[in-house]
Structures are given as C-alpha cells and as structure tokens.
Design a protein around this nucleic acid. Sequence first.
RNA 1: GGUCCCGUAGUUCAACGGAUAGAAUGGAAGUUUCCUAAACUUUAGAUAGCAGUUCGAUUCUGCUCGGGACUACCA
Length: 604
Amino acid sequence: MNPDIFIAHKAQEAVEALYGQKVELGMLQLSPTRKEFEGDYTLVVFPLLKISHLAPDATAQAIGAYITEHNPEIQSFNVVKGFLNICLSPLYWNAVLKDIASAENYGQLPSSGKTIMVEFSSPNTNKPLHLGHIRNNLLGWSVSELLAAAGHNVIKVNLVNDRGIHICKSMLAWLKTANGATPQTSGKKGDHLVGDCYVAFNDIYKKEVAELTEKYVSEGMEAEAAKELAEKNSPSLLEAQQMLFKWENGDPEVRALWEKMNSWVYEGFNKTYGDLGISFDRIYYESQTYLNGKALVQKGLDMGVLERMPDGSVWCDLTADGLDRKLLLRKDGTSVYMTQDLGTAKQRFEEYKLDEEIYVVGNEQNYHFQVLKLILKKLGFDWSDAIYHMSYGMVELPEGKMKSREGTVVDADDLINDMYRTAKETSLELGKLDGMSTEEQEQLFHMIGLGALKYFIIKVDPKKTMLFDPKESIDFNGNTGPFIQYTHARICSILRKAAEQGVDYSADKLSGNVELSAKETRIVKILAGFPDKIAEAAQAHSPALVANYAYELAKEFNQYYHETPILKESDASVMACRLALIDAISRVLRKAMGILGIQLPNKM
RNA sequence: GGUCCCGUAGUUCAACGGAUAGAAUGGAAGUUUCCUAAACUUUAGAUAGCAGUUCGAUUCUGCUCGGGACUACCA
C-alpha cells in the first residue's frame, strides 16, 4: 500500500476514535512534507475543524498523538500552523523500498478495462512535416503511452488528409515543372519532393494573381476587389479545381498520379515517424472517410436538430448555445469537414466501444471541437462527453512565428538531423565514448539528439504557446532530456562496478534491518509516489507531469550520490540497500522516460 | 464586435485552493577521498492591475490592461 494511503486510513481511524465521526478519505489531504519541515507526509487539518470543534493546532496535535501511539510504523509527528507533519519509521521505509525493488514493471497500473482512442499526427499529403507536427506527434504518442501505463487499452490512430485541393495543387505543379522527377531520380525524400511541387504551384499562382490583378485594375477595377477576383480566377487554380473534380469522379489518370505521389509522401512520412519512434495501430485515409456523416444529417433532420434551407443546404443552429450556425451540407449536397468528423466519431465509438476518444489537434480548432461535441450531444449521443480535444498551442521561434509564406518553417527532418549532429559534436568533444563501436555511437547520438528534442517539447503544458529555441534546446545542461539520460548512464555505471565486485543487491536478498537516511527516505517517498503520479498524469492527460517527475528524481539521485558513499560503503547490507535504491531509481526513470518515448542509454 | 486560450525571476518552464511561489538558464562565489565535472554547493532575482468568494488565492468569480487563436458552402 502507498504510504500516504496508509496514513490516510490511520488518520481516519483516529478521527473516528477521537470525535466519533467517520470522515471520507477525500477529506484527509495528505501530501509529501516540504523539504524545509521535518516529516514524511503532511496532513492538512483545516477541513477537519468542523468535526473536532478545536483550533487547528489542537486538532493536529490530537490526531498526531493518537496515530503515533497506535501505530508502530509511525515514529513521530510535529505540528506547524495547522499542518500535521508525520514521520514514518526508517524500517518502514526499508520495507517500502523492498516492495518497489521486487515489483515487476513498477509503474504499470493494472488494467482498467477501458478503451481509449488517440488520434494524432493527421498530416496533409502535400508537404513534409514541420515543427508544429512534431509537437503534435510527441504529445499524441506520449499521452498514448501514458494512458497505456495507467492500464487503459489504447488505440493510436492517424487520419491522413490525402485528398482535396491541396494535393491537386502539388500534382499539377509536378506535371508542369518537375520533368517527371521521382524520389529516386531526384534524390529527394518523397514528402519533400511533393512539398516542393506545392511551393512551385504557389509561385506560379502568385505570379498569375499579380498579373491578373494588374489587368483588372487597368480595366478600371478597384485594387482590393481586383485582387480578390484574380485569386479566384487564376488559371492554375481553376485547373487544380478541375483536377479535383476529375479525382472525385474517379478519373483513372488523375487517380493514378494521386496514388503515385501519395505513395512517395507516405514513404517520406514513414521515415520521419521512424526517426521519431512513432507508430500507429490504425491509419485512416480521408479519401475513404470523407463521405461519412451524411446519414447522420438525415437523422438530425428527422429529429429536428438540423434544418434544411430553401437552397438545399443543411445547417445546425447553435445560437442558443452562444455559438454560430454551422453548415453541414452544402447546397450541392456535398459534406464539409464537420460532417465527416461527426460520422467518423460515431463509427469509431461503435466499432471499438470506446470509453474515450482523444483528438490531438492544434488550438486553432478549439471552436471546431466545441461545435463537434455539441452537435453530437444534440443528436443524442451520450458519448459526446467522452471526446477530449487535446489542444496545443503554436510553437514559436526566437525570430517569431513560423510562416510558410516567409519560409521560416522549421522542417521536421532538418530539425531531427540538426539534433543528431549537435549530439554527435558535443559527445565527441567530451570524448567519453572509448570502447564503443561506431554503431553503438550512432545509436547514442540519435538517442541523445531525439531525447533533447522530445523532452524539451513534452515538458511544456500543451495548451501554452511555447518558444522553441534550437540553440537552447541543444544545451545539454539543466532540465533537459540529456541530463536525465546522463544520470541514468551514471547509475548504470555504478551498478556495473558493483556487479564486477560481485555485490548482490537483488530485492529478496535485502536486509530488513537497514535504517534509511533522511535523504534515502526522501527518494523512496518519490519512488513510492510513481504509480499515483502515473494515474494523476493520465487523468489530466498530461505527459508533462511525468517529465517533471523524472527530472526531480534524476536530480535527487545526483544530490544523493554526491553526499553518500555507495561503492565505498563497508557494511555489505547497507551497500546492497543503497544499490537497490539507485537500481530502483534507474528502473523508474526508464519507465517514466519510456512513456515520453525517450530512451535511456547505459553508457554515454 | 462575439467566443475561447494565455499573462509568474532578465530568459525558458513549474506549482489537486495549502506552509516562506519552485526549477533551469544567464550573473556572482565555491567543490575532483566511490560512478563519468554533461555533476554538486552557496547567492541575488517574479505572480500585469483592481475588486470579490474563505481559515487560506498564482489557482475560483467579475472587471481593466496586454498577447494569441477562432469567428468560410476550406480542410
């Protein structure tokens, strides 16, 4: 049992014995005692004053005295301004450490029986992934792993936006400007090749718009109106729209080109996903789901939730809920994005019997999800409340926002390579890789570079706009992934030394009589809180909590090792106990960082 | 205009309504008797403003001021 829950039960007994009233466990707020006070856990007694009818200090004093007297595990207590600080005995902590050391896969919570789908990444197939996608992918992946660690059955899905005018633009530009280039002949990664075509299209388009605008103005049109009209009438845009029309009608030539170019893109994406260590359980393609949801529209009309206008378009009126009117079917009967999402959500909840669905999508779509949930609710689907929009903010650069127009977009592949290269340079500079094969070194550089990137991004609260400073992220000091990786490597190094000396620190061999020091108690307390931390983080959908937890633990180790001899300890059972402690630290670090998708090296 | 999000040390980030608001980085001063100095120790430095709710507010409510997003028969 967790120490804090143990104490909560004891405090509950005390309150009942002293005041003859049973209190809920929720009333007993226990938290780890802050560093500057003496004690392991602190009970906040303010909520109990109504029951005790005593002053805060007197209440705390009474409860403290009672539990200390009646429980051998509780060694002492003190009271500071209504906060009851409780000390557990060193031998109790020894037993807790032994439990943790002997636990299989510590931090993995028992199965909840719940199924949760996480949709993330969701790229367009007309350009490569950029920094914004990286935040999306890392959040989606880590929240999935977090939920899995919390015992849920998680399905990771990717909805690829593989159809639409954007991909037609790339296709058109490829036909016009690429001279039949393929990833093989051009040596470009597939998604980059297609992305370059998209850029080429926009160049052509811009030029056409400028020319047309000038022409319209010379014909006496006002500048703004001329530009607007030119944007609509640009020949290449019309051509792209024509192409989309052909695509929708299954034109074999267009479809063949579409499939060819998309396959290039997927090849490129898979490389990037592989570098990021990301995979999916299922990939949906918008070309296969974009007709979803039309049946729901009929249902909505029958229910009177939706209304059909005279021109044939269908709307949902949300003005009574403080939102606008939302279009669901155009007057030509075709559906829009929202319609698809409604249908897709229903399909998924029914097919997988989901308990929750999480969409990892940027905060520019907050409104979209607000509307989505509301319409589903109006359509009578209770599971509407089980949809969670994991909204994340933009990633800004020191120079300002990323603007594709201004070419300030940071490409995902470039960034990954930069991280790798910097990890390599820094590591070689420090020259600690003696005896490592080239292959091991390569792996290590990748681990460190990616670890730095992932940790830097995941540790920030998703909904906040964050600043990504490539230079600073590559600084391997401080609250960073490499710091934790390095800490782990050092623990492994100590454990290797111990093994060479033939010390056995396995859990079943540990002596129960070793009293833990205050610092050791502190660390065991943190370790004991790991499962709770996982549960809390999963509840809050917040991988950042896990990141901060891992950092705290790594820092504790560094301080601990600095002041406590381990390999030089003369008492064998004490040494074994200390080794078991740092071994437990390393295992918890691996589990925690594993949730974030960050690998920890044994040497670095 | 309306809706939503954000505002914390110079900077980047923390803080279930709880104690003296924590880290990191940068600044200043120090530390190799066990692993690997990518570490450790000490030091200065912040809740945008005004009310309210209560034992207690960075956190909840209202207003003001700043920054951002959304407000398409696009996806």
